[in-house]
Design a protein around this nucleic acid. Structure first.
Lengths: 131, 131
DNA sequence: GAATGTGGTATCCAGCCGGTTACCAGAGAC
DNA sequence: GTCTCTGGTAACCGGCTGGATACCACATTC
């Protein structure tokens, strides 16, 4: 026999699953939050950091870059001093808003139920399955 | 001054952001796909493996366990031979379906546009920003 | 007895991801 | 001169995740 086959180093072609493709646009920590806060209108870097207090500058920067590459977000430099950057949703980005709103709506209902149950998050969870 | 304060070893309390909470339910690779395929009705382990060919048994098992713990999925043992297991969405699981459908709907539109553009995925992406 | 099909689990391991910290330039204020 | 404010980048690093592979019990079928 000849040489053993080597593994391909490229990923398999995407199956073009609509659900997977859309979620891929929002991949990465905080990405949905960034889109959410941009949905209300343009926002500067520092404003987003303030909107999402637990995000680090490094990750916010990375997320904005990725969202820009994926066509969801536009970056615009303002010539203020010091210069600042303003981010906003593109049309594609805005197309995601109904879906995001649907997710948030479920979340609101969920939280409401927790509050009714006395603030615990336990309602719909069941204990570990017997072995 | 006394001893320096030590870092807390528990995660900060969740901010109860509706969007974050809902997406947390779908955390983990393939989770949205599993929910998607269960949305059409109950499904056995092997059937799900067939539905999602690239998922491994290990990951499918882990995902189903997590979805069960989070209250989205129910497991039922069938006493066939060999015994098989059937998974189905709970009521909470079904509440996510409109949101998932909204995501998929965006995805379908996206893919449709790609096809119009000759099969390339390049349409809404722009080149790297100048340095 | 051997093969098959079911629904998994055990173990290993590489890659990625994101948190932390330090650092930067340039302009303006003081 | 030095401090501040902007919007970042560089380097380090530990943890988690998920892919690959091997393995399992049990009942039925051949």
């Amino acid at each position: 026999m000849g040489l053993p086959l080597r593994k391909s180093r490229v990923a398999a072609p995407p199956p073009a699953c609509p659900l997977t493709e859309t979620l891929a646009l929002l991949r990465g920590a905080w990405a949905p939050n960034v889109v959410w806060y941009l949905s209300a209108g343009p926002r500067r870097f520092g404003e987003l950091r303030h909107d999402i207090p637990r995000i680090s500058a490094r990750v916010l920067s990375a997320r904005l870059r990725e969202l820009e590459t994926r066509g969801l977000v536009m970056r615009r430099l303002l010539d203020t001093s010091p210069p600042s950057a303003e981010y906003s949703l593109t049309e594609l980005g805005r197309e995601l808003l109904p879906a995001i709103e649907a997710l948030a709506s479920v979340g609101r209902k969920l939280i409401q139920q927790w509050e009714k149950n006395g603030g615990t998050h336990a309602s719909p969870r069941r204990k570990a399955r017997a072995r």
